[in-house]
Nucleic acid binder design. Structure first.
Lengths: 196, 196
DNA sequence: CCATTCTTTGCGCTGCGTCTCAAACTATGG
DNA sequence: CCATAGTTTGAGACGCAGCGCAAAGAATGG
């Protein structure tokens, strides 16, 4: 054996480059040369590591899902109080602006999932993990398993929708109003459930 | 003047054909020849009516927005009781399955809005009209203008998100569970607001 | 310094999609 | 039946993206 392989590192750089390219040009307009330019490589090199372009997209999706999930997990681990954890979850679950890389990638691939099983599986997996995060915090607040499940699903749904509108540059949705609306729901739901 | 123009009718047929083509192949994979085949025309004819392909997409989006809005308006006009109207709104606001034409088109174009002002405007317009529909019904139920606004925004957001997951073939979201979750929110929110 | 293995590049081939356009076709009024 | 204006078509030009490949380049062990 002579020169050692650097495949893992290079692939990581290419995935990051693809993420930036998708942010700038969108998934539909994504070209190998865009990814290559972003990674500082030639188009041939991108093909060398990702002979099939779909494999790259799958890695990008997987990376975005992991990145998003761990970011949120750390966000709630940083605080102890369950109520504060809820707020932290909401804050991390709404994009700061229309150009947020991770959110853009996730929403672009969301639609892609309609025609590709790999992406549908990843999307479902992320949804499950997000629901699970909310569910844990809601249970810590005293909600029953069943109630926590429903409320968690709705919370994740609200995040997804407001995120979609923010990324799509809906003029009447802002990060602040989105967070406020989600929190208003969570306040309402937890109060009602804890009473009953 | 000799032969009369039929442009409006033909354009309508082409828009409908594009809608079906997007349902089958997605926006990213949309080709002129697909639209042409679906419309029973040659690719040249499609170009004759839509020299710029983006103009066709704009018409498709506009058509989907109108179609969706009027369908929902009729859904609530058919019933008189505000509570029943809410249920009718929710039913019409959740896709029946992953292959619903109108929803597929709307969600595909949703993401497109991030990079195209025309589509962003249409998306915002539809959002406004949907919120307005819910707001009317909620006010009829006795909610204040402010409360109705927030609840309406959240209801629309829930619809959007569950619709997105359904279209994306999320294995853990079904039309029935989506409707149930949205209705559980609306029940909770209206009851809480009417008490206070 | 050499052999080996991995990496990178760029060029050419190929297929595909769009756009253009002239010609054929069709419907209507005179 | 002819003139006119709208419609439809298909072929060809054109550009571009993906793929394969051969050759050059770089890192490591001996």
């Amino acid at each position: 054996m002579a020169r050692p392989k650097e495949q893992t590192a290079r692939r990581g750089e290419i995935v990051a480059a693809a993420r930036r390219a998708i942010r700038d040009r969108g998934l539909a307009g994504l070209r190998i040369k865009d990814v290559a330019r972003e990674a500082g490589l030639s188009p041939g090199s991108v093909s060398y590591y990702y002979g099939d372009f779909d494999d790259l997209l799958a890695d990008v999706h997987q990376d975005a899902v992991d990145r998003f999930y761990w970011q949120r997990l750390h966000a709630i681990e940083a605080v102890g109080d369950p109520a504060a954890q809820l707020a932290a979850l909401v804050r991390a679950g709404v994009p700061a602006g229309a150009d947020d890389e991770t959110f853009r990638v996730l929403y672009e691939l969301h639609v892609h999932a309609a025609r590709n099983r790999t992406h549908a599986v990843l999307m479902t997996a992320l949804y499950d993990r997000e629901v699970s995060l909310y569910q844990q915090v809601l249970r810590a607040l005293g909600l029953s398993a069943e109630a926590a499940r429903t409320v968690a699903e709705n919370a994740v749904a609200l995040e997804d929708a407001y995120g979609l509108h923010l990324v799509g540059r809906n003029a009447h949705v802002s990060p602040a109003s989105a967070r406020a609306n989600i929190l208003s729901y969570l306040t309402l739901a937890t109060a009602a459930e804890l009473e009953g």
